Simulated scan of single mutants.
Amino acid sequence: MAKYKSLFTIIGTIGGVNFYRLLGKPVNRIAGGGFTREAIKTKASMVRVRENNSEFGNCSHLNRIFREAIRPFYLKHKFPLFHSRLMTLFTGLKALDPVSKRGQRLVFRGLELDEGKRSLLNFAYTPECKPKTVLPFGFDMDWTTYTLTVPNFQMKRVSFISGATHIALQFGVLDFNFKTLGYKLHLADTLILPKDFSGDTLSMTIQSLPTGLGMELGVFGIRYYQEVDGEMYLLSAKNGVGISVFSIKN
């Protein structure tokens, strides 16, 4: 694969070379290679390709639904590689499926294992802005009352991006069924705190209760604002959004 420069963008095949765009940049590669649609569907040698395509398609569909479910945490923000990053998570969870044969492995089976749940909790959803790095405090989740508490809070230890005067903290419980892909996001009121905030404890409780659709995930989000003449402006820097799944209800 090679990049090319031109006064205009070519899309298609010319002289045995495929021209297309990848992440907004024009690239090209030699056409062909034997991977025709018919060959993939029928050749015995393509069985692994068919199996991979089936599992990849399931993960991609889950990926789209999951991103829709957590969209309130990143409204008005564009993640160029968010889909591919989550595909890494979901294909890894799919590979943990201990009961299904290759080509039929599913994410929800992987999440039945403790290892799968740990993967969901430890995954870096937003590497440029990790909530536990921005807020280096303990997160206490009370699943009985669906309340998140951040004790021993000190604003001086919170990381701010350039230009930010306020930090917005959002907490929600995502009730997500990884088998049926049904979901409901239950949010708490967003806390928007100035740099000179002096409180030492934060507490957030969701406004509505989950109804048992599926796995209940504690999700935490960070956004930044700049105040100018009394008006609040949302900052759109690439490190201006932080999202994490920090707890799973047992």
Rank of each mutant, 00 (worst) to 15 (best):
I243A: 01
F137Y: 08
I10A: 05
S208I: 03
R105V: 07
E112N: 12
G172S: 06
F123Q: 04
E227C: 03
I167T: 03
S236A: 09
L75D: 11
F66G: 06
H166W: 01
E68G: 12
N152T: 03
G240P: 12
N52Y: 09
E115L: 12
F176V: 05
L75N: 07
L174G: 14
V228M: 09
T88E: 10
K94T: 14
T13W: 01
H83V: 10
Y183S: 14
R109T: 06
L148E: 01
K41R: 11
R50S: 02
R102A: 14
K179S: 09
C129V: 07
L213S: 03
T165S: 07
I30H: 00
G214Y: 01
S247F: 02
S54A: 15
P127Y: 11
P131S: 01
D140F: 08
T88P: 02
D140S: 11
D140K: 11
F178T: 13
D175N: 15
L93K: 04
S84E: 14
A237G: 14
N52H: 09
T147I: 10
L217Q: 06
R50N: 01
P151C: 11
L121K: 04
L121R: 03
E231G: 00
L202D: 04
L191C: 01
L81C: 06
K117I: 14
G57W: 00
G242E: 08
R67H: 06
N53L: 15
P194V: 05
N239C: 04
S203R: 06
S208H: 07
D114T: 15
F139S: 11
K184I: 04
G116K: 03
G240A: 13
A124P: 11
H83I: 06
T91H: 06
F178D: 11
Y183H: 15
N18A: 11
E115I: 12
M232K: 13
N152G: 02
G230T: 14
A39M: 08
Y225R: 02
Q154E: 15
L86Q: 05
P131V: 00
E115K: 10
L96D: 09
V27R: 05
V99P: 00
R71H: 15
A168P: 08
L185A: 05
L75G: 03
N250H: 15
K184T: 10
Y233A: 07
L193Y: 05
L235I: 09
F123G: 00
R29D: 10
G57D: 03
G218A: 13
D229N: 14
K156F: 04
E112P: 01
P131I: 00
R157I: 05
G16H: 03
I40C: 01
H186N: 13
L121C: 05
L75W: 07
L148W: 00
A44S: 15
L191W: 00
F178R: 12
K249H: 08
V17K: 05
Y233P: 03
G92D: 04
V241E: 02
L213T: 08
R85Y: 07
G33Y: 15
I192F: 00
S45E: 10
P127S: 11
G116T: 08
G218Y: 02
T147A: 09
L86T: 08
I10D: 02
G33P: 14
T88C: 09
R71I: 05
G33M: 15
D175C: 13
G57A: 05
R29V: 04
